[in-house]
Amino acid sequence: MKLEVRNVSLEYQMRRSQQRILALQDISFGIDSGELVAILGPSGCGKTSLLYVIGGLLPATRGEIRIDEQPVNRPGHNRATVFQSAALMPWRTVLRNVTYGLEIQKYPIEQAKKNARGLIQLVGLTGFEESYPRELSGGMQQRVNLARALATSPEVLLMDEPLSNLDAQMRELMQLEIQRIWLETRKTILYVTHSIDEAVFLADRVIVMTARPGNIKTIVPIDLPRPRLLSHKKSPDFHRLHAMLWDLAEEEFIKLGEPGSEMIK
């Protein structure tokens, strides 16, 4: 088992009301090496918090994270995060954004640039090395975000809704790109999303989370053949899985008690 989450709970205190909130409740699951697992849940279910706990950016209140059997509780070279907003440094060029993690980890700059060029090619941005982030489209910025995370050669890649800020067509295209890059690199990926379509298209398994406090509702294996094509989204198998996940997610959505959610049934 590459990544193991054992009985993780996360509590935090609201600043103003001093109220304690249970964001994650006793979560346990494991991911094998080279597996792409999606975490699907309604907004506010704590899925991003879970990703930060695994990344070592938030301390778990209880439980532990293990990578290759070793407990981890702080950021480390074996994990890297792809953030929801591209989080690029606007004063750095594409190349220097991709080398950023390597610079922090004290690689010699020439070596870092060489690594970065390879990854810029992998994510399809050759020719944009000297561009600044604001000169790039949202999709291209997310490619830089991905290349930066891959540059430090992490064993586990943590992706936090990386496509949620893109328009619909770009999202489809980037789903294909992420699958291609994953098939080429065979990283272990934990992919947080609220999009059922994205989860079914990309994942080997989908972890469905409950509404707050976040817990695992069920884990659904996606046994569709690889490489998956966008046209496969029209297949009966895809539809069956999509509908099944929709029903599971819907129960949680109704629990959130948004006005009008009772109309769904």
Partner: peptide
């Protein structure tokens, strides 16, 4: 300083001095 950029720097294991020179100063 941008909150997400700070998370990003920390996720690569940046210490305070690195956060200063690569993020806070620029």
């Amino acid at each position: 300083v941008d909150e997400t950029l700070l998370k990003c720097a920390r996720s690569f294991g940046a210490n305070d001095q690195q956060v200063f020179s690569t993020l806070v100063l620029p």
